[in-house]
Each structure stands twice: as C-alpha cells, then as structure tokens.
C-alpha cells in the first residue's frame, strides 16, 4: 500500500485545482513487494478505468519496466501477469505524492496516504 492501482485512481482535489492534477508524483518512496492472487478477469474488467500512460510512468519511476508504452491489442498471459504485478504487488509504504499543478503534498505513512485537505484548500 499504496498500490499503483490506487495511485492511478487518485487525483489532487484541492479547491480550484482541476487541470493537470493527475497523476500525483511520487517522492522519497519506500517500496515493498507483496504477492497477490492473480485474477485475469479482474484485470481485464479494470483496464478501461486505467490511465495507461500514468500507470506505465509510475511503474518505470519505481523501477518496473515490464509494461509497454502502448496498450496492447492482445491481452496474453505474459502481459496480464506483468499488469497484475504492477497494479497489485508493488506497495509504496512511505513517501509523498505531489500534485503536478498546485504542488500540494500528500504524505504516505505506514502505507496509508493522507488525502485530507487543510481548511484553505476546500471550497
């Protein structure tokens, strides 16, 4: 935790920060790898929701280059295994996620990201 599937779903939500607010940039991260159950149907079902480029970039930043830059047409087993590993098995335990637009920093502590905003950041 934070897994990359989660990272792919979270955008900066500071008041007025509506563009270029995704993906959040990882900084000073500590990573752990943990095995998860492989479920190809889950992966295929989730793919339409993913921002592919953001996922590939985040994976590369964390040292995993197994995913192709372009989403392949054929979802073979090798590809799904790599996707499984990237989405579900890489956990960011410590560090921060920074908004590329407003630079708000969301800290991650013991695997839990704090996405809570301060008063001046809400509507």
């Amino acid at each position: 935790m934070v897994r990359l599937i989660t990272h792919n779903l979270l955008a900066c939500h500071v008041k007025g920060c509506n563009s270029n607010n995704f993906p959040l940039e990882f900084k000073d991260v500590q990573i752990e790898l943990r095995e998860a159950e492989f479920n190809p149907d889950f992966l295929k079902g989730f793919m339409p929701k993913l921002e592919w480029k953001a996922l590939v970039d985040a994976a590369r930043q964390l040292g995993d280059t197994s995913l192709p830059l372009e989403l392949p047409e054929m979802l073979d087993d090798d590809f799904l295994k790599n996707l499984h590993h990237v989405l579900l098995e890489i956990h960011v335990e410590e560090g921060t996620m920074t908004c590329p637009n407003c630079k708000h920093e969301y800290p991650i502590l013991n695997g839990i990201p704090n996405m809570l905003l301060a008063e001046h950041e809400i509507g």
């Binding site: 935790m1 934070v2 897994r3 599937i5 989660t6 792919n8 779903l9 979270l10 955008a11 900066c12 939500h13 995704f22 943990r34 095995e35 998860a36 159950e37 929701k49 921002e51 695997g111 839990i112 990201p113 704090n114 996405m115 809570l116 905003l117 809400i122």
Partner: peptide, 22 residues
C-alpha cells in the same frame, strides 16, 4: 490482507477519486 486493496485518509465529501464507475 492481500485483498485489502488500500486504505486512505480523507473526508468523503472532499474526495480525491479521479473518476466514477469504479
């Protein structure tokens, strides 16, 4: 534990979900 996708701290009325239909 491997099925706990993630846990996050936020006010659900000020949530960071990038999109719906999840």
């Amino acid at each position: 534990a491997s099925r706990m996708m993630d846990i996050c701290t936020f006010d659900v009325t000020r949530n960071p979900w990038r999109c719906g239909g999840l």
